[in-house]
Design a protein around this nucleic acid. Structure first.
Lengths: 179, 179
DNA sequence: CGTAGCATGTAAGTTGTTACATGATTCG
DNA sequence: CGAATCATGTAACAACTTACATGCTACG
């Protein structure tokens, strides 16, 4: 039984909200943690198999009514324990790669308009994110779940908002400087 | 001749500052773009070989005075063109994974102290980054290079500062809320 | 009748990290 | 004399993306 990776632990976390299929996990993760954590089907399905083999999740197959069979997974006691142990450990520091910044960094090799474009595009993206976050907030409030659970969801959302706003401020500053 | 990846283009970019060895590239990238772009030797050396085979960089070997041979690479005209074409293209949107946020997101499954710890650790990290950025700024000012080049370097540095400050603000807000 | 949604999965390819291997010189 | 710095490289592994394959149902 090899050590689990972050992806697998993230799936355990999502399953803590209730039994779900691989498909459901993708849908849920896309809107709930999609702005700081992405999973693809190419990862989800193999991971679920692996987690089941390790006894961390249990599968229940529903014969499809005409359509394809649906495999619903729920967290086992062992799975929950593994998850909680992971949650208690400090997160590793990671340096995300930023292609846009790299292009600004080397921007003196091309005409200034290109740098302006990169920054303007970033600004539009951050703006779009802020709009999306407002929608997510409404969705969270509508969702069922304990107040404490919602509080944690909203905390991560606030993080996204802080970052997006900082990006916008930076973009505006830089665009002014470049003019 | 397959398409180059971002890592290889980043190396071309760094070589635009002058001829360098693989070792030099690592040192330079660590302090200059290290806060948003990392390269490891395991990537650098194979990439340089590949770039040379493609005629984008040229190698000059200096017989080592006792020590190991040193391979210095410089950007060719073709390499510079490739780099400039890449700089003109818009950057792809990327969603960096954030383990710390994931742990806050699922934080209702463990005691509140753990969430506090994650956030406190983040705060300390962002603080440390801000200190490091001040040192980088001094280093940039001391470095030789055109004013325009320095301007671009400082722009990316400002980005780092904006983000680190936003992170600190978020941490402080959240710590207050959790008390 | 075409498209979107439900639903699961695999294979190939890409990209990246880490540990290992080697070895001289310089500084404290 | 040991550690740090200069210096290059490979091998094993880990992780992730994308395209492909399949096929039903509901809706417009």
């Amino acid at each position: 039984m090899k050590r689990l990776n972050q992806s697998q632990l993230a799936l355990l976390g999502l399953l803590s909200f209730g039994a779900m299929s691989g498909y459901d996990l993708k849908q849920l993760s896309d809107w709930s943690v999609g702005y700081f954590w992405r999973e693809s089907y190419g990862q989800i399905y193999p991971h679920l198999k692996r987690l089941e083999a390790d006894g961390l999740v249990a599968r229940k197959t529903e014969r499809g009514t005409g359509r394809r069979d649906r495999h619903e997974y729920r967290l086992t006691a062992a799975g929950k324990q593994t998850l909680q142990r992971w949650l208690a450990k400090p997160a590793a520091e990671e340096i995300p790669r930023n292609e846009m910044l790299l292009k600004v960094f080397f921007g003196d090799l091309v005409a200034p308009e290109f740098t302006v474009e990169h920054i303007a595009r970033q600004k539009a993206q951050s703006e779009a994110e802020l709009t999306a976050y407002a929608a997510v907030q409404k969705r969270i409030e509508g969702e069922q779940g304990s107040p404490r659970q919602k509080q944690h969801w909203l905390m991560t959302l606030r993080y996204g908002i802080h970052i997006a706003q900082a990006q916008m401020n930076w973009c505006e500053e830089m665009l002014k400087e470049l003019k």
